[in-house]
């Protein structure tokens, strides 16, 4: 098993981050071309705690090394199942994801938490556990795990950059909405 951990501070309130999080893979993010679709599968508010639980299917398309493609049967499209929990009382967003594709070959479990540091800053903490499952062949297992850790590292850098764009655009869109509303009142 290999672990990838990463932490980023965004200079936006938790509310702004939690709203922009739903738009993370939209047109405002030009650094997430590898995510080609995001579908919501289930969503409800827990009546007792107010926690919003959402299931999503995230479809990615990313080139893989040739040797890995031959192992995994050539497909470059892969899917991730994500369950997220928004806790408005504690002000946290927790997202737990695991791979749906190639799940008999490798197990990828990722947890992401967004929580406020103060009124204007939000912390993103990411933790991924990658375990290759094929029996015996330690060298192949290590190669699969290393390849995926490298992929996580590359996507993490792009993810921060892309999400910064989404946050800036989202803030601007909300400011424009407010101005429009104020103009209508005047």
């Amino acid at each position: 098993m290999k672990v990838f951990s990463n932490s980023v501070t965004f200079n936006y309130s938790w509310e702004e981050v939690s709203i922009a999080n739903w738009q993370k893979y939209g047109p405002w993010n030009d650094k997430s071309a590898h995510v080609i679709a995001v579908d919501t599968l289930n969503r409800h508010v827990d009546p007792e705690t107010g926690v919003l639980r959402t299931e999503r299917l995230i479809t990615c398309k990313q080139s893989a090394p040739e040797w890995l493609k031959s192992l995994m049967g050539c497909t470059e499209t892969s899917q991730v199942f994500e369950t997220s929990y928004v806790n408005p009382a504690e002000r946290t967003v927790t997202m737990v994801s695991q791979n749906v594709t190639w799940s008999n070959l490798v197990n990828v479990q990722e947890t992401v938490v967004y929580k406020p540091l103060n009124a204007g800053q939000t912390q993103f903490v990411q933790d991924a556990r990658i375990t290759a499952l094929c029996g015996g062949w330690q060298r192949i297992k290590n190669s699969i795990e290393d390849t995926l850790v490298t992929r996580f590292r590359e996507n993490a850098a792009k993810g921060k950059e892309g999400f910064e764009c989404v946050l800036a655009m989202s803030r601007r869109a909300f400011a424009e909405e407010r101005e429009k509303a104020a103009a209508m009142m005047a």
């Binding site: 599968l41 827990d46 705690t49 926690v51 639980r53 299931e55 299917l57 899917q79 199942f81 369950t83 929990y85 806790n87 927790t94 737990v96 695991q98 749906v100 594709t101 799940s103």
Partner: peptide
């Protein structure tokens, strides 16, 4: 495949709800 993934991760509900 989604049903399997959901089954694998259902213990998270107690943890996060």
């Amino acid at each position: 495949l989604i049903d399997e993934a959901r089954e694998d991760t259902k213990e998270n509900d107690a943890l996060y709800i």
